[in-house]
Simulated assay, not measured.
Amino acid sequence: MNTFLAFYQAIGPALTLLVMATFLLAGTVKGVIGLGLPTVAMGMLGLAMLPAQAAALLIIPSAVTNLWQLAFGGHLSALLKRLWPMLLLTFLGTGLGALWLCMGGGPWVVRALGGALLAYALSGLFLPTFQVKPQTERWLGPLIGMVTGVMTSATGVFVIPAVPYLQALGLNRDQLVQALGLSFTVSTLALAAGLAWRGALGSGEINASLLSLVPALLGMWLGQVVRQRISAVLFKRVFFVGMALLGGHLLVSG
């Protein structure tokens, strides 16, 4: 048990409490709006630890919750046929980014994370939903995948520009939720591979990530309860404002 808890024993009770609270909040956000777990986790944990440590912690909660989201909807084969160029370039972009980008430390990494969060929040608050035409999708999808992969390897956040792009494809609600789960699953696996290649995903980090799954799943359950009681539009607006403030803080103080 001491080995299993070694990561949390090393970081101390205060940071352990922060990790548990962060994944509870991140799971709640995902339960309400269907996304946001890695974004909230990287943003909040980035205030107190290196991005590579935060990214290692989110691997299992992100993978499990995204696979759950991916499993339901009935559109998997059609989405794979349509999105495979973007997904392939996302994986490759993350791998290529891991060759020359280092999430392990340095102020620029924290500022890059802050910039990604701020861009994501501002796009959600102010940008209209674009429409991508089929002929544009053929070349734009792979480009979006490559940029998303590089952003993932640099910051651990894989919502920019993948989420706005998927929202612009004209998918219905069930298709969009499943497409997001598919994209996030590929990004999570690619991020895990990159961290393992850099030696930042050992048994201690995996055990710590497994324990963080508990508050994440509890948060998802709470989020589903909350979703029945408040407007998802209002919650999403509050979420984006919070991400903008958090991203701005990391960008300035990183």
Rank of each mutant, 00 (worst) to 15 (best):
L57W: 06
L57A: 01
L57G: 00
L58W: 02
L58S: 09
I59T: 10
I59Q: 04
I59H: 00
I60D: 01
P61W: 00
S62H: 04
A63M: 13
A63S: 10
V64E: 02
V64C: 08
N66S: 15
L67G: 03
L67F: 11
L67A: 14
Q69M: 09
Q69E: 00
Q69D: 02
Q69F: 07
A71R: 15
A71K: 14
A71P: 06
F72W: 10
G73V: 01
G73R: 07
G73W: 03
G73I: 01
G74V: 00
G74L: 06
H75M: 01
H75A: 14
S77V: 13
S77F: 08
A78D: 07
A78L: 08
A78E: 14
L80A: 12
L80C: 14
K81W: 01
K81Y: 04
R82I: 04
W84G: 05
W84R: 02
P85F: 08
M86L: 15
L87R: 09
L87D: 00
L87S: 02
L88H: 01
L89C: 07
L89D: 03
L89F: 04
F91Q: 03
F91H: 00
G93K: 00
T94L: 07
T94F: 04
T94P: 01
G95L: 01
G95E: 08
G95K: 08
G95D: 08
G97D: 08
L99T: 03
L99G: 06
L99F: 06
W100H: 07
W100S: 13
L101H: 04
L101P: 11
C102T: 11
C102S: 12
C102N: 05
C102K: 05
M103P: 02
M103R: 08
M103S: 10
G104R: 08
G104K: 06
G104E: 11
G104I: 02
G104L: 02
G104P: 03
G105C: 11
G106Q: 12
G106D: 06
G106P: 08
W108N: 12
V109T: 07
V109G: 00
V110Q: 13
V110K: 15
V110F: 11
R111G: 10
A112K: 09
L113K: 05
L113I: 12
G115R: 03
G115S: 14
G115P: 03
A116G: 09
A116L: 12
A116E: 05
L117S: 05
L118G: 05
L118K: 09
L118S: 13
L118Y: 07
A119Y: 11
A119G: 14
Y120C: 04
Y120K: 09
A121F: 10
A121Y: 09
L122H: 04
L122G: 04
S123F: 10
S123Q: 13
G124M: 13
L125H: 12
F126R: 12
L127T: 04
T129A: 14
T129M: 09
F130H: 13
Q131I: 12
Q131M: 12
V132I: 15
V132S: 11
V132T: 15
V132L: 15
V132G: 02
K133C: 09
Q135F: 09
Q135V: 04
T136I: 03
T136C: 09
T136P: 00
E137K: 13
E137S: 14
E137M: 08
R138K: 15
R138A: 12
L140H: 11
L140A: 13
G141K: 06
G141F: 01
G141A: 15
G141E: 02
P142M: 05
P142E: 04
P142H: 03
